[in-house]
Amino acid sequence: MQSSDLELLVTRVMPFGKYKGRLIADLPGHYLHWFARNGFPPGEIGRLLAIMQELDHNGLASILNPLRKSPA
């Protein structure tokens, strides 16, 4: 994981599925854990989902809060 990955978690949206259009950082834990059990998709999205699942599982999702853009 690189520090730039953390920024991607709060800017990249889920491109498919039930939560299509939602920020990766805002995906519910049960959805992330489902991927952990069943396999992450290939490529960047899969890598970001795996990172977010690890953060969520370890109770560290709040470290992303300072990276979120404040509403203008």
Rank of each mutant, 00 (worst) to 15 (best):
M1T: 13
Q2E: 12
S3M: 11
S3V: 15
S3C: 11
S4H: 14
D5W: 05
L6G: 05
L6I: 03
L6A: 04
L6V: 05
L6N: 01
L6H: 04
L6S: 04
E7Y: 15
E7W: 13
E7M: 13
E7N: 14
E7G: 13
L8F: 09
L9Y: 01
L9S: 02
L9K: 00
L9I: 01
L9M: 02
V10D: 01
T11I: 00
T11D: 00
T11L: 05
R12P: 10
R12V: 15
R12H: 13
R12N: 12
V13I: 14
V13G: 10
V13C: 14
V13H: 15
M14T: 05
M14N: 09
M14V: 06
P15E: 03
P15Q: 06
P15G: 06
P15M: 07
F16Q: 15
F16W: 13
F16C: 12
F16A: 14
G17F: 04
G17N: 04
K18W: 10
Y19A: 09
Y19C: 09
Y19V: 08
Y19D: 08
K20C: 13
K20V: 10
G21V: 04
G21M: 05
R22L: 13
R22T: 15
L23V: 01
L23P: 02
I24D: 00
A25I: 02
A25T: 00
A25S: 08
D26M: 03
D26S: 05
D26L: 02
L27V: 06
L27G: 05
P28V: 00
G29D: 10
G29E: 13
H30R: 13
Y31D: 09
Y31A: 11
Y31Q: 11
L32K: 03
L32V: 04
L32Q: 04
L32T: 03
L32W: 03
L32H: 01
L32S: 02
L32E: 05
L32R: 03
H33N: 11
H33R: 15
H33E: 12
H33C: 11
W34S: 09
W34E: 08
W34M: 10
W34R: 12
F35Q: 08
F35A: 11
F35Y: 15
A36Q: 12
A36L: 09
A36T: 08
R37N: 09
R37T: 09
R37L: 14
R37D: 10
R37E: 11
N38L: 09
N38I: 07
G39I: 01
G39C: 02
G39P: 01
G39H: 02
G39W: 00
F40W: 04
P41F: 04
P41Y: 02
P41M: 04
P41Q: 01
P42E: 07
P42V: 07
G43M: 01
G43E: 00
E44T: 14
E44Q: 15
I45N: 03
I45W: 06
I45M: 08
I45C: 06
I45A: 05
